[in-house]
Every structure is written in structure tokens, then in C-alpha cells.
Amino acid sequence: MIRISDGDISSLPDIAALVERAFPAEYGEGWNASQLRSMMSLRHVRSYVAHRDHDLVGFAIVRTILEECEILLIAVDPDSRREGIATGLLAQLTSEAKAMSVTRLFLEMREGNAAEALYTAHGFRPVGRRTDYYRGPTGLRYDAITFADIVGQ
């Protein structure tokens, strides 16, 4: 059974390890431990963690300012994908966003990322593009697509 709860800075080592497993280095999407620590320490940033027993199998990090919430990073362990974990994380953060009077959710993802099907199934629609936003270790660049969802619709 999957349990979703609030994360905190004590979750950082497990989140950093999951980032290594979940984001292929070739695309430059994953964050390092220092970037995660910096972001998770900010006042308007919140994290959600998904555990199976004692193992972290997914997480989401979001930033909420006024009526907008941005999903900064969301990941599920590759061995646990297609089990509804990302859907559970999205449901939890959306529910809490509604309670905080958030009206729009945003996220950015690499063009061609298989997660696009998940986001569109949950109401996200493309609203913009950032050319050459992601840079892999070999120097190849990839566009990011910005998605938005109106909360409550």
C-alpha cells in the first residue's frame, strides 16, 4: 500500500537518490542534492513523499505563491511506475492547492517526456515553450513545454 505524506528536509537523502534513478542524466532534468536542499528550504515550497512500507517510491516538490502553484519536480521510482503513485501525488497536491485558494497549477517538462500523457489525463494543457531549456551532459539541448491546469475544473 502506498502512503502519501508531507515531506521535509529529512527526506532529502531519499529524494536525491530517487532523482538519480528516475531522471536519465542524458536530458539534464534532474536536480542534484544541493539544488534540492536549496529549493526545499524556501518558505513557499512544500514537498510530498510517497512510501511503500519504508521505501520512498515517489515525491513531488511544489512552490505556491498567491493563487498559483508550480510543480517544480515530481518523480516516481522506475520500478514502481504505472501503479498510480504519480496520480496520488497529483491528487494530494491538487487537493491542498484548492484548500489554499490556488486557481492554477503549472509545470514544465521536457518535450517528448512520456509523463505528458499523465499530465494531460489530469487536465494539464500546454501553454508555452522554453527553447533549449534542458541541457544534457553532452551539451545536447531540449525544449521544455509549460503546462497549466485550472484547479477545480
Score class of each variant (00 low, 15 high):
R81T: 05
I74G: 14
G128N: 08
D79I: 09
A22F: 11
D132V: 02
M1K: 13
L118V: 08
E111K: 07
R63F: 00
F23S: 04
G139P: 12
A144P: 10
F124R: 06
A60F: 09
G84L: 01
R43S: 06
G128E: 09
L90W: 10
L66D: 13
E108T: 05
Y119K: 06
A86G: 15
V57Y: 12
L12H: 14
V62K: 00
L105M: 09
L105E: 03
H44P: 00
F106M: 09
E68M: 05
V102K: 00
Y27L: 03
L18M: 13
H54V: 11
E26R: 14
S101R: 12
M109A: 05
T131F: 04
H51D: 13
R110I: 03
I85L: 12
G136Q: 03
S101F: 11
D55S: 15
Y133T: 02
I65L: 10
A16K: 02
G84A: 00
S95P: 05
D149E: 10
V76N: 06
R3V: 15
R46G: 00
R63A: 00
A75N: 04
I74A: 15
I4L: 12
I61A: 02
T120A: 07
P126G: 07
F124Q: 08
T138R: 08
A86N: 08
S95M: 10
R130L: 08
A22Q: 13
E116S: 10
C69T: 02
T131Y: 03
D55H: 15
F106D: 07
G30W: 04
Y142L: 03
Y27S: 04
D149C: 09
S10P: 13
S5E: 14
Y134C: 02
P137V: 04
Y48N: 01
W31G: 00
E68G: 05
I9W: 12
V45T: 01
L140C: 09
R43T: 06
R81N: 04
T120C: 10
Q153C: 08
E20S: 07
A121F: 04
D6P: 14
V102D: 00
I4Q: 11
V19N: 02
P126R: 04
Y119F: 12
H122Y: 11
S95A: 12
I2S: 15
D77W: 07
A86E: 04
D77K: 11
Q35Y: 02
